[in-house]
Simulated scan of single mutants.
Amino acid sequence: LLYSPLDLEPQVLLPLLSGIFGASSLILSLTTKVQIPRQTESKIKMPGSTLAKAVLSGGLGGSLVAWIPGVSPSVASIAARLGSPGTAEEFLVSIAGVNSANALFSLVALYVIDRPRSGAAAAIQQLLTLDQNIMAQMMIMAVIVVLASYLATIAAAQLAARSISSLNYPRLCIIVLVFLLAMTYAFTGLFGLFIFFLSTIVGLIAPVAGIHRIHAMGVLMLPLIVMYI
C-alpha cells in the first residue's frame, strides 16, 4: 500500500515514528503556547561520586540495549534512572553515557552476532563486511568522534543559547510540522499520511494520560517479539 509519488524507497517507520515522537510533540507545544526563556550560562557542579554513578548507569544501559532488538537508547535512559531520578544534570550525563555506549556496542553486536541494532549499524552492514581490523579502526574513529562532538556541542550550545530566545517558536513548530508532512507524502504517499495521522494521535494520548511516550515503542517491540517467537 505504501508508494512514493517521487519514486523514492518507501519507509513505513518514517510516518510511524515521525507521528508518535515528532508531530505529537509539536502539536502539544503549539497548544500549550510554550515560551523559550532567556538563556543564561552557568557552571554545572556535580560531586565526583554522583558523576561516576550517572556515567556508569548510562554506559551500562546503553551497552545492554545495543544487543536487544526493538529496544532504543531512550528506554535505557529511563531504566537507568529508575529508583534514582536525581537532578536534571545527572539525567543529561546518563543520557550521554547511554548514547555513547550504544553507538560503540552496536558495532560490537554487528560484528559478533551479525545483526544490526541501529540505523548506523544497518548502513555499515550494507557497505562493508566487518573483520577485526575494520572493527578496531571503527572503534577508534568512534571514540575520536565522541570527543570531537563533545567540544563541538559545547561551542554550538553557546551560540544557540544566545539566539534561541529570539526565535518565533510557534512558527518554527509549524514549519517543522509542514516539513514532516511533506517528507511523509514524498516517501510514502497517501497511505503514509494516514499512518502519520494515526501515530500522531497515539503520540498525543501519552501526555494526556500522564504516561511516558517511550511506552509507544511497543509498536516496534511487540512485532519483533512475535516474529522471533
Score class of each variant (00 low, 15 high):
residue 39 Q to H: 11
residue 174 I to T: 14
residue 44 I to D: 03
residue 147 L to P: 04
residue 160 A to Y: 06
residue 131 D to R: 04
residue 203 G to H: 04
residue 223 P to Q: 11
residue 159 L to N: 09
residue 183 M to N: 05
residue 16 L to A: 05
residue 115 R to I: 12
residue 41 E to I: 10
residue 25 S to T: 12
residue 170 P to T: 06
residue 224 L to M: 15
residue 174 I to E: 07
residue 5 P to L: 00
residue 110 L to R: 07
residue 176 V to P: 08
residue 164 I to C: 05
residue 42 S to H: 14
residue 194 F to I: 15
residue 125 Q to I: 02
residue 95 I to H: 00
residue 224 L to Q: 13
residue 97 G to K: 02
residue 117 R to E: 03
residue 204 L to E: 07
residue 61 G to K: 07
residue 3 Y to P: 02
residue 178 V to W: 02
residue 48 G to P: 07
residue 35 Q to S: 14
residue 183 M to S: 12
residue 40 T to Y: 12
residue 2 L to V: 01
residue 15 P to V: 01
residue 223 P to G: 06
residue 50 T to G: 15
residue 208 V to P: 00
residue 81 R to W: 04
residue 156 A to Y: 09
residue 124 I to F: 03
residue 218 G to E: 04
residue 116 P to M: 03
residue 85 P to D: 05
residue 119 G to C: 00
residue 69 P to K: 01
residue 145 V to G: 00
residue 84 S to K: 14
residue 164 I to Q: 04
residue 207 P to R: 00
residue 106 S to F: 01
residue 51 L to D: 08
residue 50 T to W: 03
residue 148 A to R: 01
residue 25 S to A: 15
residue 21 F to C: 11
residue 146 V to R: 04
residue 88 A to I: 07
residue 112 V to C: 03
residue 167 L to V: 12
residue 132 Q to P: 02
residue 3 Y to H: 13
residue 180 L to K: 05
residue 159 L to T: 10
residue 177 L to C: 01
residue 124 I to G: 01
residue 127 L to C: 10
residue 197 F to M: 10
residue 85 P to A: 06
residue 33 K to Q: 12
residue 54 A to R: 00
residue 171 R to P: 00
residue 213 R to Q: 14
residue 148 A to K: 01
residue 72 S to L: 02
residue 64 L to I: 15
residue 138 M to C: 07
residue 92 L to K: 10
residue 180 L to H: 09
residue 61 G to E: 04
residue 167 L to R: 03
residue 130 L to W: 08
residue 167 L to C: 09
residue 72 S to N: 04
residue 217 M to R: 04
residue 224 L to R: 05
residue 198 L to F: 15
residue 203 G to P: 05
residue 43 K to Q: 13
residue 127 L to E: 14
residue 45 K to R: 13
residue 60 L to E: 11
residue 104 L to I: 15
residue 41 E to V: 08
residue 19 G to R: 00
residue 72 S to A: 11
residue 33 K to G: 09
residue 93 V to I: 06
residue 164 I to P: 04
residue 113 I to K: 13
residue 197 F to R: 03
residue 180 L to T: 08
residue 116 P to R: 02
residue 45 K to E: 13
residue 58 G to N: 09
residue 103 A to I: 09
residue 13 L to F: 10
residue 179 F to V: 12
residue 34 V to C: 11
residue 179 F to C: 12
residue 168 N to C: 06
residue 160 A to K: 00
residue 226 V to E: 11
residue 129 T to E: 14
residue 208 V to G: 06
residue 44 I to Q: 01
residue 94 S to H: 01
residue 32 T to Y: 07
residue 42 S to R: 15
residue 51 L to N: 08
residue 33 K to S: 14
residue 214 I to Y: 08
residue 176 V to F: 11
residue 211 I to Y: 11
residue 171 R to A: 15
residue 128 L to H: 06
residue 170 P to A: 03
residue 31 T to C: 11
residue 110 L to P: 06
residue 58 G to L: 05
residue 14 L to H: 01
residue 132 Q to F: 11
residue 60 L to S: 13
residue 200 T to S: 09
residue 149 S to A: 11
residue 31 T to H: 13
residue 35 Q to W: 04
residue 124 I to V: 04
residue 75 V to F: 15
residue 99 N to A: 13
residue 166 S to Q: 09
residue 70 G to F: 06
residue 24 S to H: 04
residue 177 L to M: 00
residue 144 I to E: 06
residue 57 S to T: 07
residue 174 I to H: 07
residue 53 K to M: 14
residue 118 S to C: 07
residue 221 M to Y: 12
residue 160 A to F: 15
residue 140 I to Q: 10
residue 179 F to G: 08
residue 90 E to P: 04
residue 188 T to K: 02
